[in-house]
Simulated scan of single mutants.
Amino acid sequence: MHQTTSLFLDTLRFTAAMTVLLHHLTGQTFNSSFSPVPWGREAVIAFFVISGFVIAYVLDSRERDLKIYVSARLGRLYSVILPALFITPLLDHFGRQAAPDLYREIVADHVVLRILINLANLQESWNLTTAPLSNGPFWSLAFEFWYYVVFGAYTLLSGYSRQIVILLACLAAGPRIIFTMPVWLLGVVAYRLDQKTHLHRSSACVLFAISGLGIALYMTTFGHSVLQSLNDAIFGGSHSRYWTLGGHTLFLGDLPKLPADILLGILFATAIVTVKPAMEGLHPPVWISSSIRYLAGSTFSLYLFHAPLLYFIAANMHLQKHSAYSVTLLGVLVFLTCFALSYPTERQVGRYRAFFLDLISTASRAYQSFRTRMK
């Protein structure tokens, strides 16, 4: 991958993770001092497009073998999923003892079942919306996981194996996840265009500027009003999150926002495709690029650890929502803790990948041995 594109993806990834943190920090649960940061979902759309681009890249370069691909994807996800699912119940337990009122809106029933469902990435399948206690951001991991499975099967398998795996994955994921996949696939399209098109710098600069302006407009009240009108035109003004068919009710979640999500995804994809030719000949100082890559190495931890840490630290520091100093201190403590947690988790992703590769290889050898004995 070209260095300019790679650095831009790291910048976008870290910015998106910080946006999600600030979105939750400035919400009414923890804050009455600062204006809320409303772009949490928009940041997740950026993550989806980045993910599609990166997966298309690794499948086209270093992960063309099925075992390598599966172990790499599992290692990447579970390097943080496993620690997050272990830490979240502990933090919630002690945080709830310190400040029970702070946790009054956190559903805490069937804890073990919630953890197991999220461990299997089934938390958003069909009518499920099963958050692991205070760790709400886990919802997007289910989307990512099943996109890895479907696209990996489509790319690396063939014949009936491909069809069966894709069918089973779609059935397990459910329509809410699968119908949102076009947003993720925009990242795949961006990668294909990045490889096959050679834009003149002036054209790339214009398109890059247009995508940036489009993203900025999207974030404004004007942009949201236009997109709401678009959704009204498509869905007839109905904003129900449920769809009834044959006496069965299907939970749609944020699926009615799909047209707006696709539009934003196109803008992000355009920026990714055009950044390389637009920035041709421009080289940031080494310390800037090194800093960006260093910070980007903690984005997954920042995303998956920040929510339970917000609750736990706020509960134990006796947060004063009306105090700008108190809210800022909470944000800084959460950021630093997430950053520290990245060292034994996602920054050790190579070890996790090696573990899963050994596990898959052992299972494969056992299966082959079993088949040989059965002949």
Rank of each mutant, 00 (worst) to 15 (best):
Y147L: 12
A108H: 08
I115S: 02
G174H: 09
L171Y: 09
S134V: 04
L171F: 13
A131K: 03
W146V: 11
I215D: 03
N118T: 02
I166T: 14
T155C: 12
C170K: 07
Y147Q: 09
V149C: 09
A204H: 04
L157D: 09
K196T: 12
I106K: 06
V111T: 11
A108R: 09
S203F: 08
V149M: 10
I215K: 05
N118S: 02
V183A: 12
W139K: 07
T129W: 06
N135L: 04
S202C: 02
G152A: 10
I215E: 08
V165L: 14
A173G: 13
H200G: 09
S203W: 08
V112S: 03
L167R: 08
F138V: 06
L128D: 00
F138E: 00
N121C: 15
I210Q: 02
P175T: 09
W184Q: 12
I178K: 05
S202L: 07
L141W: 02
V188M: 07
I177K: 06
L156D: 13
I166C: 14
I106R: 06
N118W: 02
A204Q: 05
F138K: 01
L186W: 03
S161D: 11
V150W: 01
G212M: 12
Q195T: 11
F208T: 07
V206F: 15
Q163W: 13
H198F: 03
R104Q: 14
H198N: 09
L122W: 03
N118A: 02
Y191S: 05
A190K: 03
N135M: 05
F208E: 01
A204R: 05
A172F: 12
G214N: 10
I215Y: 10
T180L: 15
P137A: 04
I106N: 03
V149D: 08
A204S: 11
S202N: 10
V183L: 14
L207H: 06
L207M: 14
L168F: 14
F208G: 01
G214H: 11
L199W: 11
S140N: 10
V112P: 00
S158H: 13
S125A: 12
I115D: 00
Y147K: 00
L199T: 01
H200Y: 02
G212I: 11
N135I: 05
N118D: 04
Y103N: 07
A142C: 14
A153D: 13
V189Y: 07
T180G: 06
H200A: 08
Y191Q: 01
N127S: 00
Q163Y: 07
V107S: 02
R176W: 09
S158V: 10
I164A: 13
C170I: 15
F179C: 14
P137N: 07
S158E: 15
G136E: 08
V165F: 08
L133W: 02
L168S: 07
A204C: 05
F143I: 14
F179V: 15
Q123V: 03
L119G: 06
F145C: 09
Y191A: 04
